[in-house]
């Protein structure tokens, strides 16, 4: 019989198909044998309109374990992603993903992705995860903005591309780290 983690992820999948925020993508991977890998999801988060991150569509990977939903998934951007709260490996530092802080088993995939979208434009330097973005953010708003636009440009793709798997940016290939 299915594990609690997988049963919950099947429910998450159903919930997502029924209703999800516009422009977001969230999908468990398909293995070569045609089975669905429920523990590994490839997702995409659009940058919010009116922010430095707009127009970009950012690849995010959610890695669940059999301890989900007692434990949060590991959420990562491609390695080296420029943001004060993203670790060098690409892992996201966010309170709702932290067992000691905000994680609750009731948090859904949708809430995680919306939370990460929110984080893009609201970095928190008190919990800096990488030096480069931390320093630039602190040093100069203009330079930080310029650097973010460069980052966003890496993940800008034609709108038609993101429905099927074929429209992946080159950057997506970098997701598989760790």
């Amino acid at each position: 019989m299915s594990s609690l983690a997988k049963t919950r992820l099947q429910t998450e999948r159903k919930g997502w198909r029924k209703d999800h925020p516009h422009g977001f993508v969230a999908k468990p991977r398909t293995a070569r044998d045609g089975s669905v890998d429920l523990l590994n999801w490839d997702c995409k988060i659009p940058g919010k309109a009116g922010t430095l991150w707009e127009k970009g569509l950012y690849p995010i990977r959610l890695e669940f374990t059999e301890d989900y939903p007692s434990k949060p998934p590991k959420v990562s951007f491609p390695a080296g992603f420029f943001h004060p709260n993203v670790y060098p490996s690409g892992k996201v530092c966010l309170s709702i993903l932290n067992e000691d802080k905000g994680w609750k088993p009731s948090i859904t995939v949708k809430q995680i992705l919306v939370g990460v979208q929110e984080l893009l434009d609201n970095p928190n330097n008190a919990d800096a995860a990488q030096e480069a973005a931390y320093k630039l953010f602190k040093k100069s708003g203009a330079e930080y903005a310029k650097r973010v636009r460069i980052e966003a440009a890496k993940y800008t793709e034609a709108p038609a591309g993101f429905v099927a798997g074929g429209g992946a940016t080159g950057a997506e290939d970098d997701v598989i780290v760790l």
């Binding site: 019989m1 299915s2 594990s3 099947q10 198909r17 468990p28 669905v36 429920l38 099927a164 798997g165």
Partner: peptide, 21 residues
């Protein structure tokens, strides 16, 4: 749904590769 995977879903909102699978 099988214990380890999803076997069948309604077409509604699925990607082409999923429908095919």
């Amino acid at each position: 749904n099988a214990p380890e995977t999803i076997l069948y879903e309604q077409d509604d909102g699925l990607d082409d590769d999923e429908i095919e699978q």
